[in-house]
Each structure stands twice: as structure tokens, then as C-alpha cells.
């Protein structure tokens, strides 16, 4: 049976919800390049969080053990950290890249 999971569609759905339910989120970068087919990677720029030295992505545990099973990782960064990442002074987690990133809101 084919996997009905549509990664891009799900990413849009999650991003919409995150903007609705978290006023701290200023922008979301969806980073599909290099990610496994069943993995959604978000970098969320959040003005409400405190800065930590080495932010780590969090597995939200969204969908486990069925035909649509997939993983949503969210890396929260402050606006200042986002500036650092874009300037190449702060690294993304191993295997993550901004190449081919899609931005929300679109």
C-alpha cells in the first residue's frame, strides 16, 4: 500500500496551526532538503523564548504507528539567533540546511 503522507501539505497545515496558536512565532522555515521522506523540519523564529547557547530540535511526537506516520521536528530560535544563522555565525543541527527552504507565511 502506498504511503498517503503528503509532506508539503502537512508542513503547511502544521505551520498554519503554529501561527494560530503561538503568537511568539514570527516566521517558520520549512527545511525539506536532506530530510528523510517522513520527516518535517521546521525552524521557528520566536520572539517569546529566551536564548540558549545551543538550541536543539524537538520531536513533537505528532503521528506514530500508522500508515501516515511521520516526524515533526521544531527548532526554536530567537530573532537574534536567526540573524546569526543567516550570517553563517551559528550552525544548524547536523544534516539541516537552509538550501531550498520554504518560508511561512508563504
Amino acid at each position: 500500500m502506498s504511503n498517503p503522507f503528503d509532506r508539503d501539505a502537512m508542513a503547511r497545515c502544521y505551520a498554519k496551526r503554529h501561527f494560530e496558536t503561538d503568537s511568539g512565532v514570527q516566521q517558520i522555515k520549512y527545511l525539506p532538503k536532506g530530510a528523510p521522506d517522513s520527516e518535517i523540519r521546521f525552524l521557528e523564529v520566536n520572539r517569546m523564548i529566551a536564548e540558549t547557547d545551543d538550541p536543539e530540535p524537538i520531536d513533537f511526537g505528532v503521528d506514530i504507528g500508522n500508515a501516515n506516520a511521520h516526524t515533526l521536528y521544531v527548532l526554536d530560535v530567537t530573532p537574534a539567533q536567526w540573524e546569526e544563522i543567516q550570517a553563517g555565525r551559528m550552525r544548524l543541527p547536523p544534516g539541516w540546511t537552509l538550501e531550498d527552504a520554504k518560508s511561512f507565511p508563504e
Partner: peptide, 27 residues
Amino acid sequence: YLWRSGKPPPKTHTGFVRFLKALLDRR
């Protein structure tokens, strides 16, 4: 809650808002 993935959540930045957001993302 975040341990439901079977992976350890980060030691920091895993406060209450993360729980609320992750919960709403369920099927």
C-alpha cells in the same frame, strides 16, 4: 509528553508552550 516520540527532549526550552503546541498537532 515529548517523550512519546521515544527520544529524549532537550534539557532546556521544553516548557509548557511546547506541550500545548505539540498536543494540538496530534492526528
